[in-house]
């Protein structure tokens, strides 16, 4: 149990998707204009990651990995479908995103319109695919580890985008030099936030 909690905390703060790996930047930069929409997108990302990472974990271990198919019979034991992992992971993510899209469209049309193109684009949000690939690379032992990793990474991304949105709301009326208005200053803020998040780097759990 403590071990799961460690993975959870680690993926939120220490291995933060945005500030440690700079993944998922496109939607992070584009949708962080107001806190409200970014909370919506952040929750969507948490949801998608919490589902896709364990599902991909199961696929990885019972379908894709070298020898994963041995449960079908001894003749499949040396089969390695690893080369399919990208396409299968993406397919899982895309179908999850489809589902989220339908739910949001049904229950919160305003959020749906304000997220616009970035909602379907979660499917190619590198943080989410990155989550599944990190799961593969780090060799988590149980599906629960994968779940807590997915949930933690989602929450880490959520924290980053919501914090960014609050800062952008605050500096909206600042007298930012013209060439830096908009994305320029956002990049600078991201870098400075990255420095602040370095406070966690090096903690061993």
């Amino acid at each position: 149990m403590a071990h799961l909690f460690d993975i959870f905390i680690k993926s939120i703060f220490i291995d933060n998707m945005v500030f440690a790996y700079f993944l998922g930047m496109c939607s992070f930069l584009a949708v962080s204009k107001t806190v409200k929409t970014s909370v919506g997108l952040g929750v969507a990302v948490i949801f998608v990651m919490t589902i896709t990472v364990p599902v991909d974990y199961l696929l990885e271990n019972y379908l894709l990995k070298a020898g994963a198919l041995s449960w079908l019979g001894p003749q499949f034991a040396d089969l390695n479908l690893d080369f399919l992992s990208f396409i299968i992971f993406i397919a899982v993510i895309a179908s999850m995103v489809q589902l989220v899209e339908m739910i949001i469209e049904k229950y919160s049309p305003t959020l749906y319109t304000s997220l616009g193109i970035f909602l379907p684009l979660i499917a190619v949000n590198c943080a989410i695919l990155g989550g599944s690939l990190f799961m593969q690379e780090r060799d988590y032992q149980t599906v629960w580890e994968a779940t807590s990793f997915g949930l933690g990474s989602g929450i880490g991304w959520f924290l980053a985008i919501v914090g960014m949105a609050a800062i952008r709301e605050k500096i909206r009326y600042s007298n930012v030099p013209k060439p830096l208005k908009g994305l320029g200053i956002t990049f600078i803020v991201t870098g400075l936030m990255g420095i602040a998040f370095m406070s966690f780097m090096g903690i061993k759990l």
């Binding site: 806190v35 914090g163 609050a166 605050k170 936030m193 420095i195 602040a196 370095m198 406070s199």
Partner: peptide
């Protein structure tokens, strides 16, 4: 140093 910088990041969010 890092604690204050980190909370500087989240101060606008707290305010919000």
């Amino acid at each position: 140093m890092l604690a204050i910088l980190l909370m500087n990041v989240f101060a606008p969010l707290i305010d919000h």
